[in-house]
Amino acid sequence: MTDQQAEARSYLSEEMIAEFKAAFDMFDADGGGDISVKELGTVMRMLGQTPTKEELDAIIEEVDEDGSGTIDFEEFLVMMVRQ
């Protein structure tokens, strides 16, 4: 866990972390443990947004600390705390 990830967790109660985990699992449609650009786009479109591929890439790049091209749960928490 990076310093950013530990800091993000410090702002959240266990209840909030559990709620974010449920949301993360909804995004992680294939159950792979991370959110891909495609999965992020699908959920955002379900919520009425129309992000471009470039916008989706930028969202993932902003929090993808390990350079995997996807968002894992710890990175997702950082993203949610920043919102």
Rank of each mutant, 00 (worst) to 15 (best):
I59D: 01
I35D: 05
S68Q: 14
K53S: 15
E75P: 02
R9N: 11
F76V: 01
E7N: 06
V63P: 03
A18E: 12
E74F: 03
M16C: 07
A29R: 14
D66V: 06
T52V: 04
T42C: 15
S68A: 05
L12I: 06
K38Y: 02
D72H: 14
E74H: 01
F20K: 00
F73G: 00
M26W: 04
T70I: 09
S10Y: 15
Q5E: 09
G48N: 04
E61W: 06
F20A: 13
K38L: 12
Y11R: 08
D66N: 09
K38I: 12
S10M: 06
D30C: 05
E62M: 07
L40K: 00
V43L: 10
D72Q: 14
D57I: 03
K53H: 03
S13Q: 06
A6V: 14
F20P: 00
A6N: 09
R82I: 03
T42E: 13
L47I: 13
S36N: 02
Y11G: 10
G33A: 02
G41P: 04
M44W: 01
F73A: 01
T2D: 15
D66C: 11
L56F: 11
A58P: 04
T42Q: 13
S36F: 06
E54M: 06
R45N: 02
L56E: 06
G48M: 03
E39I: 02
A29D: 14
R82A: 06
F20L: 05
I71C: 12
K53N: 09
R45W: 05
T70D: 06
L77M: 09
S36D: 11
M46E: 12
I17Q: 05
G31V: 03
S36K: 08
T50S: 14
A18H: 03
R9I: 06
E61N: 15
S10P: 05
Q83P: 15
A29P: 08
M80E: 02
M46K: 12
D64K: 08
R82T: 04
R9T: 02
D3G: 10
E75Q: 13
R9A: 11
L47W: 01
A22S: 15
L12G: 03
G32W: 03
Q4H: 02
D34V: 12
V78C: 10
I60R: 03
G67R: 08
A18L: 13
D30Y: 02
I71S: 00
M46Y: 10
A58V: 13
G41L: 06
A58E: 09
Q5T: 03
E39R: 12
T52H: 05
S68H: 05
T52P: 09
A18C: 11
E7R: 09
G41Q: 11
F24D: 00
K53A: 12
G41H: 14
E54D: 14
D72Y: 07
V43A: 05
Y11F: 07
K38D: 12
G31W: 02
I17G: 01
M80Q: 10
E55K: 10
T52D: 07
E65Q: 10
I17L: 06
I59Y: 13
E62W: 15
K21C: 01
K21A: 07
F20D: 01
D64P: 05
E19G: 09
E74Q: 12
E74D: 04
M44S: 03
K53E: 15
L77G: 01
G31K: 10
D25N: 13
S68R: 09
E62A: 11
E15H: 08
Q49P: 04
L12K: 04
I60F: 06
V63F: 15
M26F: 14
I60W: 04
E19V: 04
E74K: 02
R9F: 10
R9M: 06
D28R: 12
L77W: 02
E61K: 13
L56A: 03
V63Y: 11
E15P: 04
T50W: 06
R82Y: 06
I60N: 04
F76K: 00
T2Q: 15
V78D: 10
